[in-house]
């Protein structure tokens, strides 16, 4: 999950979600970074509107309440 959180932090700080930045964040957190996963994540997020995806989590609070 740490890779995705790292992407979320970059998204909030407004930094580009690229391999270098992700690696830096994960490094700083003491994560033993796997390059291939970083690559895969960057590629996968290329066409994703992160803010929209995140705000959809907010859109279903009622359902969450059930949990």
């Amino acid at each position: 999950m740490e890779y995705v959180y790292a992407a979320l932090i970059l998204n909030e700080s407004g930094e580009e979600i690229n391999e270098d930045n992700l690696t830096d964040v994960l490094d700083a957190a003491g994560v033993d970074v796997e390059e291939s996963r970083v690559k895969a994540l960057v590629a996968a997020l290329e066409d994703v509107d992160i803010d929209e995806a995140v705000s959809e989590a907010a859109a279903a609070p009622a359902a969450a309440a059930g949990g």
């Binding site: 999950m1 959180y5 992407a7 997020l45 992160i50 995806a53 995140v54 989590a57 969450a64």
Partner: peptide, 25 residues
């Protein structure tokens, strides 16, 4: 914390590449 986790999972659903996803997801 719960909210952050929910956001992460919401974002994960938008990711098609299994390899880019954490094992848990």
């Amino acid at each position: 914390v719960t909210k952050a986790d929910a956001q992460l999972r919401a974002l994960a659903t938008q990711i098609d590449d299994e390899e880019a996803l954490p094992e848990e997801l």
